[in-house]
Design a protein around this nucleic acid. Structure first.
Length: 269
DNA sequence: AATACTATCAACCGCTATTAG
DNA sequence: TCTAATAGCGGTTGATAGTAT
């Protein structure tokens, strides 16, 4: 036989968490640490499924979570990482350690997807008295730029992976993801180097509700490191590099093809 | 002021890989 | 070794706040 069930499925409570439940959960995690979620409901008396407890902790109660508005840098960072990794929100979130995967996923679905669509549509103007040549020039400017970016990112990742597999170990094992994550962070570092200047004032988001949990619970709990910090992605220079690479909002089309930036900017070692 | 519509986000659902018994 | 539960992930939903009519 297998394990006994973690909680009574019949008496399990659903819906929004109350502040009292939050406090119980935080107190428990403070004493026992995160993990072993199946032990949480029976030990705390919470009428919640272990899954729900884990979700509540990771998405809301975990210290160090920043909520509220995403900065421009974060936006571009997410766009870049999404192009690179796809909808692997947990992986993307590991490069934005103070954001949860759920937050990033929500932000992507509600804001960024629309933004990208809007840019695509504005880059492909409706019927206008333009010549065929003009149409070609304007057609999907943003879309083409994005596709080029995606292509470059993938190429860079492939090369980085091949470099590492050659230099480290020939056996692709369970560390495969760690390996790729390592390389992604290296790429980001490279972009940082490629960036001309660090005109990178990280716009501190002034989200209202945001730090509330952090300040509330950080007094109770120490901040855990996610390992992503080691990736060095929070480096403002890296963010600035991505910004300059993407040129999302400046309204000016890039004059040089990305290839030139790659060769000039040393995208890869 | 009332109603309809839209946007946001917390939480749930379903799936897969891993792990305990 | 096998079976069933857990952990974790991405997709989706539903409640609610905000805005438009």
């Amino acid at each position: 036989m297998g394990r006994p069930p973690c909680c009574d499925k019949d008496g399990v409570k659903k819906g929004p968490w109350t502040p009292e439940e939050d406090i119980i959960l935080v107190s428990y995690v403070q004493d026992h640490g995160p993990g072993n979620w199946r032990a949480v409901p029976p030990n705390t008396g919470l009428m919640r499924c272990s899954k729900s407890c884990r979700l509540r902790w990771t998405n809301y109660l975990r210290p160090g979570i920043r909520r509220g508005n995403f900065s421009e840098q974060e936006e571009k960072h997410i766009v870049q990482l999404q192009a690179l990794l796809g909808n692997r929100w947990a992986a993307i979130a590991s490069y934005l350690p103070d954001r949860t995967d759920n937050d990033i996923k929500n932000y992507w679905n509600t804001h960024l997807k629309k933004k990208l669509l809007h840019r695509t549509s504005t880059a492909t103007p409706a019927p206008a008295p333009t010549t065929h040549k003009d149409q070609n020039n304007n057609k999907g400017q943003w879309e083409r730029r994005l596709q080029t970016d995606i292509h470059l990112a993938r190429q860079a990742l492939r090369e980085a992976l091949s470099l590492d597999t050659a230099s480290t170990s020939a056996t692709p094992g369970p560390a495969a993801y760690a390996l790729s994550a390592q390389n992604v962070s290296r790429m980001l570092d490279d972009w940082a180097v490629a960036a001309d200047s660090a005109s990178s004032e990280v716009t501190e988001c002034s989200g209202g509700s945001t730090a509330s949990n952090g300040t509330l619970w950080s007094s109770l709990l120490g901040r855990e490191s996610t390992g992503a910090a080691a990736a060095g992605v929070e480096d403002p220079a890296a963010l600035s590099a991505i910004e300059s690479w993407l040129l999302l909002d400046d309204g000016t089309d890039r004059q040089q093809p990305p290839e030139q930036e790659q060769s000039g900017g040393q995208l890869l070692p």
